[in-house]
Amino acid sequence: MSYTTPSLRHALLPVLACLVLAGCSAESVNGSSAAAPGKSASPASDAPRQAGSKGTGKSGSPRSPAAVPVSVSIPSLGIDSELMRLGLNQDGTVEVPPADKGMTAGWYTGGATPGEPGAAVIIGHNNTRYGKAVFHDLKKIGKGADIAVRNNRGAELHFRVTATETVSKKAFPAEKVYGATGARTLRLITCDGAFDDRGHPVDNLIVYANRN
Rank of each mutant, 00 (worst) to 15 (best):
T109M: 08
Y178S: 00
N152V: 05
P65I: 02
T162S: 09
G115S: 01
T185P: 00
A180K: 14
D100M: 09
L88Q: 09
A41W: 03
A26R: 08
L157Y: 02
Y208E: 05
A119V: 03
N212T: 07
Y178F: 15
S2R: 12
A112T: 06
G110N: 06
D46Y: 10
K143N: 15
A41R: 05
S40I: 08
A174Y: 01
G55H: 08
N89I: 05
T113R: 07
R187I: 03
I147H: 00
R187P: 01
P48G: 11
G78D: 14
S40R: 12
K140A: 12
P114Y: 01
P14W: 01
A148P: 01
I79R: 00
G142Y: 07
P117H: 02
I79Q: 01
A11M: 10
G102Y: 07
P75I: 13
Y108G: 03
N30R: 09
G110V: 04
L12E: 10
Y178Q: 00
V29K: 12
V70E: 11
T164D: 03
A11S: 14
G142I: 09
P6C: 10
R211T: 04
A11H: 09
P43V: 08
A155W: 02
P75E: 09
T181F: 03
R85K: 15
P201N: 06
W107M: 08
V94R: 06
G111Q: 03
D46P: 04
K170D: 10
R184T: 07
N89E: 14
N126E: 09
A183D: 11
H158T: 15
L19M: 11
L19H: 14
A194G: 05
A180S: 12
C191H: 01
T5D: 13
P201A: 02
G38Q: 04
S64C: 07
M84C: 09
S32K: 11
A105H: 01
T5R: 15
S76T: 15
P69D: 04
L8P: 06
V96A: 11
A41M: 13
A120I: 03
I141E: 00
H158P: 04
S42P: 01
A35C: 08
K139P: 01
N204C: 00
S45R: 08
V202N: 03
L138Y: 04
G124H: 02
P201W: 03
F195K: 10
H10D: 14
T164W: 03
L19G: 15
A47L: 12
A41S: 13
R160I: 12
E116N: 10
A148M: 11
I189W: 00
N212S: 08
G115Q: 02
K140C: 06
L12C: 13
D80T: 11
P173E: 04
N126A: 10
Y178L: 04
T109G: 01
L138R: 02
Q50N: 14
F159L: 03
G87W: 05
L13C: 13
N126F: 14
L157V: 11
G199H: 08
L21R: 13
L86T: 04
D146W: 06
N89D: 15
A11K: 14
V29D: 07
G131V: 12
R85N: 10
T4P: 06
V72W: 02
D137E: 14
S28K: 09
I123N: 02
V15T: 15
F195D: 10
G52D: 05
L83S: 01
L86K: 00
E175G: 14
I147K: 00
P69C: 08
K54L: 07
R150A: 13
E116G: 04
T109H: 04
K101E: 15
S61A: 12
P97I: 04
